[in-house]
């Protein structure tokens, strides 16, 4: 068993919080894990990605080979497309549909959604709206993680536990909001995949 995930977004959007939850759950299961991150210059509003690899055997490379990623999980729609060379033909793309526009030549919304629609396996979700409705706009990342959860071979219960433990020090209310966001994202993916 192996799961290779490209996490994508813009520097400062906090893609690593998604990674830390999956990582926490995976370590509890005794899985092997490698996670290559981007630090430095690109963190200043540039495109950032993380290669996140899980397996029940030893993992060789820190980088996922092109054409072999099982999932792209993106918190920004245009950024999700930047990593298509890595996605395997059977892989799924899970992305937020809310753009982060900090460049003058950002594509028009209809052009962007047309590109996303061309993909056979995708979940495109308005994570910001769902998170806001559930009381925490800052938890959009948990909605996206929830939407990706049906494609990750880890029991959902274990992912829920990881969310509870990672957010535990922030208090019960924040834990519950994040769990609600996680579940809402999962439900959306199950209905729309």
């Amino acid at each position: 068993m192996k799961i290779d995930i490209i996490l994508a977004g813009v520097g400062g959007q906090g893609i690593l919080s998604i990674a830390s939850i999956i990582g926490y759950a995976a370590l509890k299961k005794g899985l092997h894990l490698k996670q290559a991150e981007v630090h430095g210059m690109s963190q200043r509003g540039g495109d950032v990605q993380s290669h996140f690899r899980l397996a029940d055997h030893e993992i060789a490379s820190d980088l996922i080979p092109q054409g072999q990623a099982d999932l792209i999980i993106s918190v920004e729609p245009m950024e999700s497309l930047r990593y298509l060379p890595w996605l395997s033909s059977k892989g799924w793309l899970i992305t937020n549909d809310q753009p982060f526009i900090n460049i003058p030549n950002y594509p028009a919304p209809e052009v962007l959604s047309a590109e996303l629609n061309k993909l056979p396996n995708k979940v495109v979700i308005n994570a910001d709206k769902i998170a806001k409705e559930l009381g925490s706009a800052r938890s959009a990342n948990m909605v996206i993680l929830g939407a990706a959860s049906p494609f990750i071979e880890i029991d959902f219960k274990d992912i829920e536990n990881a969310v509870s433990e990672v957010f535990a020090r922030k208090g019960e209310e924040i834990v519950n909001t994040n769990l609600a966001c996680l579940r809402a994202g999962r439900e959306f993916a199950q209905q729309n995949k």
């Binding site: 540039g46 080979p65 950024e79 030549n105």
Partner: peptide, 20 residues
């Protein structure tokens, strides 16, 4: 044999780092 997914669509614009 090398493996490759799909090309990056042309609409994807570069997003260089910028001052905050």
């Amino acid at each position: 044999t090398d493996t490759y997914g799909a090309d990056v669509p042309e609409i994807v614009a570069p997003r260089p780092p910028a001052l905050c």
